[in-house]
């Protein structure tokens, strides 16, 4: 099946992974997200910043259709993942979410062992044929999340017994284990102390080599540290999107400038 001699497809940094056009989200009567157009690049860290309630998390949850789980939420417009509309009738959200992993604001390890937490995704998607293969996947994911050395001797202990920072890295390992193409992170460091935050940020930088990472953050310093692209949301609008360096040093929109200099937010 695999043609080892196939010339590797030239992956430039500018290849578009996700392309959103005129995305609208309504929560009941509330128009939460208005006309969002954005192109998210492959193998890039994209940060969404903006004040609370600006719609950045809402947009993130549109990409893997997590908003489907909220009965009153309604999404319009187009979000293309590899040129395929994720809101197409034929797309199964379950398959989509296997391709688009997600890490949440609060660490949410399952009440299972560390091993079973990481093996959860591979098991439900049938990614391993035998125990040895599964062991390999788990170890690789835990190494990928920089957690292996800390937990390798206690894989059978409950994941809920780890510290907050370790729990969050366990959740990242759990998402990485299904080998997603995109990883969505919804304020992954907001419940962590500065040291754990630094570890997770370092991890994000490494994960970028494998897939596209989209991170929602409240911390502008974090956005500046980890991302190459930044999008600023305000009151449901995507105000400005561009290279992180440009957004933070030469914002074009007055609202962006006001936010990054701490005047609105």
């Amino acid at each position: 099946m695999y043609d080892m001699n196939r010339p590797e497809k030239a992956v430039s940094q500018t290849e578009t992974k996700i392309s959103a056009r005129k995305v609208q989200v309504y929560y009941g009567d509330k128009h939460a997200l208005k006309d969002v157009d954005v192109d998210i690049l492959d193998k890039t860290v994209t940060a969404f910043i903006g004040p609370s309630g600006c719609g950045k998390s809402t947009f993130l949850r549109c990409i893997n259709r997590m908003n489907d789980t909220i009965p009153i939420a309604r999404v319009e417009g187009q979000i293309l993942l590899d040129n395929e509309d994720v809101y197409d009738r034929r797309v199964d959200p379950v398959q989509l979410r296997a391709k688009v992993g997600m890490v949440f604001q609060k660490p949410n390890p399952f009440p299972k062992s560390i091993y079973d937490n990481v093996a959860y995704g591979p098991r439900i998607h049938g990614l391993a044929r035998n125990r040895a293969e599964l062991d390999g996947i788990v170890e690789k994911a835990l190494r990928g999340a920089a957690l292996w050395n800390e937990v390798k001797d206690r894989l059978s202990e409950p994941g809920t017994g780890l510290s907050g920072g370790q729990q969050q890295r366990l959740c990242i390992a759990r998402a990485v284990a299904t080998s997603p193409e995109v990883l969505l992170m919804d304020e992954p460091c907001s419940a962590l102390d500065p040291i754990a935050t630094a570890q997770v940020e370092e991890l994000i930088e490494e994960l970028r080599s494998q897939f596209s990472v989209v991170i929602v953050t409240h911390s502008m310093q974090q956005a500046a540290r980890v991302s190459q692209k930044t999008a600023f949301f305000h009151l449901g609008n995507l105000v400005e999107y561009g290279d992180t360096d440009d957004i933070f040093t030469r914002p074009r929109d007055s609202r962006t400038e006001a936010y990054i200099s701490g005047r609105i937010g």
């Binding site: 789980t69 391709k99 992993g101 949440f104 949410n108 399952f110």
Partner: peptide, 14 residues
């Protein structure tokens, strides 16, 4: 907690 359900659904569970 809802976060556990979100976590499982986010990994592509039915």
């Amino acid at each position: 907690p809802q976060s556990l359900r979100d976590g499982a659904l986010g990994l592509g569970s039915t």
